[in-house]
Amino acid sequence: MGIATVTLNRPAKRNALDIATIEELVDIFAALPHEGIRAAILRAEGPHFCAGLDLVEHHREERSAADFMRVCMRWHEAFNKMEYGGVPVIAALKGAVVGGGLELASAAHIRVAGPDCYFGLPEGQRGLFTGGGATIRVADLIGKARMIDMMLTGRLYAGDEAVSVGLCQYLVEDPETKARELAERAAQNPALSNFAICSAISHMQNMSALDAAYAEAVVAGVVNTQDAARERLAAFAGGTAAKVRPDS
């Protein structure tokens, strides 16, 4: 069905993101749309999803301000390719999803958390500031005030509270199984529809209301007249399409 699995594999480091991992993420998410991939699952080895920036590497490198700005731009490149690439990315989250790990997770289109999952932005306590898009994506998910609170005080979110504030959409016992179920469901949609859903909406959020309305009309004109849409509309008109209704 064309579902890719992308795995963070530095469990001894709680999957902290060093620059080599970021460069791999850039390459992977740049390639997925061109390889017939219909959906992707982002998961991690070990008990934690991602503890954020590899602070040991950062300390060892003694980067200048310009050096670290360039590192941040590579993070943005990786996460933008996830969010705007047009392939649905479902993140299966567990354990720590903190700092840059939360920035990574927030670039996914759907976030599925396990019961041991917790979210944090501890940058303030470490004398740091977010550099991988939290001010854009995390603030968009939970609001400016909650994000500032997390950074100033080290507040963590978990469980139902994390769902209620928007950090994740699902809270389940087995996030990887649920992520695969969602990926398989999304992969059944026409690729052009998924491309629009997973790129155009984010672009429109960056526009004025007037420009977004125009862009939405253009995208709808293209997507809603594709051959796959015509086939599905014919099934609907003929009474053979699946009904939209809650599960019994």
Rank of each mutant, 00 (worst) to 15 (best):
M1K: 04
M1E: 03
G2Y: 00
I3V: 15
A4M: 13
T5S: 10
V6L: 12
V6C: 06
T7H: 01
N9A: 15
A12N: 08
K13A: 15
I19H: 08
E23Q: 10
E24Q: 15
V26H: 02
I28W: 05
I28L: 14
F29I: 03
L32R: 08
G36Q: 04
I37R: 08
A39Q: 10
A40S: 12
I41T: 01
L42V: 07
A44T: 05
G46V: 04
C50G: 09
A51D: 05
G52H: 09
L53P: 00
L53T: 09
D54S: 13
V56I: 15
V56R: 05
H59Q: 13
H59Y: 11
D67S: 06
D67F: 07
C72S: 14
C72E: 14
W75H: 13
H76L: 15
E77Q: 12
E77A: 11
A78V: 06
N80D: 15
Y84C: 04
P88M: 07
V89D: 03
V89A: 12
A91V: 06
A92D: 02
K94A: 14
V97Q: 03
V98L: 06
G99H: 00
G99M: 01
G101R: 00
E103S: 12
V112N: 01
G114N: 09
G114M: 04
P115V: 04
Y118P: 00
L121N: 03
E123A: 11
G124L: 08
Q125C: 01
R126L: 15
R126K: 13
G127M: 10
L128K: 04
F129Q: 03
F129D: 00
T130K: 00
T130E: 06
G133V: 01
A139K: 12
A139D: 02
A139T: 07
D140Q: 11
L141K: 14
I142H: 07
I142E: 02
G143Y: 04
G143P: 02
R146W: 01
R146Q: 08
T153A: 02
T153V: 02
L156M: 09
G159Q: 07
D160C: 01
A162K: 04
A162C: 05
G166F: 12
Y170S: 03
V172T: 10
E176G: 08
E176I: 15
T177N: 09
K178P: 07
A179C: 11
E181A: 14
L182E: 04
A183S: 13
A183L: 06
R185G: 02
A186M: 11
N189I: 00
P190C: 06
S193F: 11
F195A: 13
F195C: 09
I197C: 08
S199G: 10
I201S: 14
M207Q: 12
S208L: 10
L210G: 05
A212R: 02
A212T: 02
A213V: 03
Y214V: 13
E216F: 10
A217R: 15
G221E: 14
G221S: 09
V222M: 11
V223G: 01
N224G: 11
N224S: 08
N224K: 02
Q226C: 14
D227F: 11
A228V: 07
E231T: 04
F236A: 13
G239P: 08
T240I: 12
T240F: 14
P246C: 00
